[in-house]
Amino acid sequence: MMDHAHDLGAVHEATDRLLNEAGKWDNAALAEPSRLPGWSRGHVLAHLSRNADALGNVLRGRPMYASSETRDADIETGSARPLAEQLADFEASAGRFAAVADEPADWSRTVTLRNGVTDSASRVPFRRLIELEIHHVDLDTGYELEDLPAEFTEREIAFLTERFSGHPDVPATTVTAEDGRTWTTGGGSDGPAVSVRGTAAGLLGWLAGRRDGSALTVTGGALPALPPL
């Protein structure tokens, strides 16, 4: 069961971590490439600011974004702002999300995200946490998948294996961390059952599309190619 209050606390901590890191930059560092193809660090920060507002919209029962085109344009326009503007926007949008989350609400209700995806409102704070933690790694400033909180890594692996469960292009796959924790995913294709084993960070990197999986041990077939997130 989701504990939205616990996750909101983790969101606050992840926000502070990222703000402390970005506060060390200058405008030149902001303009440097991130690990996401075609995106600078400025693009990543602009996306995170707009995502905070978008998830606030979700909690209030509004469309997440006015449109995909508006979302993309806002990120592109926002990416070129000076560092001081980016940080102020990031902090202000985080505050707006926190304020919405503090409003009395039924956290068991169903909410609608992008592309008609629905979920429990109680999972929205964790979705924000995913954005903050994974994109902090994407900024390429020394914060790596291995540095993520262990609880987050385990929960994100569970979230992603659940997401790919039954996917028609993913064979039945057992995912096992070095400490023995096991998850299952796929099962929607006719391919042979596959076993994938590795460090928790390595498994998360593969599942989240941040690593190619070459460091993982695969038996029963080839490493499954996962759909884009």
Score class of each variant (00 low, 15 high):
25 W>H: 04
134 I>T: 09
99 A>V: 02
114 R>A: 15
73 A>K: 14
136 H>V: 10
225 A>H: 11
204 L>E: 10
48 L>E: 09
81 R>I: 00
213 G>T: 02
87 L>W: 03
57 N>C: 10
32 E>A: 15
90 F>G: 00
71 R>W: 08
96 R>I: 04
177 A>Y: 10
51 N>M: 15
7 D>G: 00
222 A>R: 12
79 S>E: 10
48 L>N: 01
31 A>C: 02
223 L>Y: 07
143 Y>T: 11
61 G>D: 05
184 T>E: 11
29 A>K: 14
9 G>Q: 14
195 S>Y: 02
56 G>Q: 08
140 D>L: 01
96 R>M: 05
54 A>H: 10
127 R>W: 05
37 P>K: 04
20 N>F: 04
67 S>H: 05
145 L>R: 11
199 T>C: 07
94 A>W: 01
219 T>F: 03
169 D>I: 07
73 A>F: 01
151 E>A: 15
96 R>C: 04
70 T>M: 10
176 T>A: 10
147 D>M: 08
189 S>A: 09
5 A>S: 12
77 T>C: 05
85 E>G: 04
143 Y>R: 08
126 F>K: 06
199 T>L: 02
86 Q>E: 13
222 A>E: 14
210 R>S: 06
175 V>F: 08
110 T>V: 11
49 S>K: 01
108 S>V: 04
8 L>W: 06
92 A>R: 13
144 E>S: 14
139 L>F: 07
100 V>T: 12
150 A>L: 12
8 L>K: 06
16 D>W: 14
172 A>D: 10
210 R>N: 03
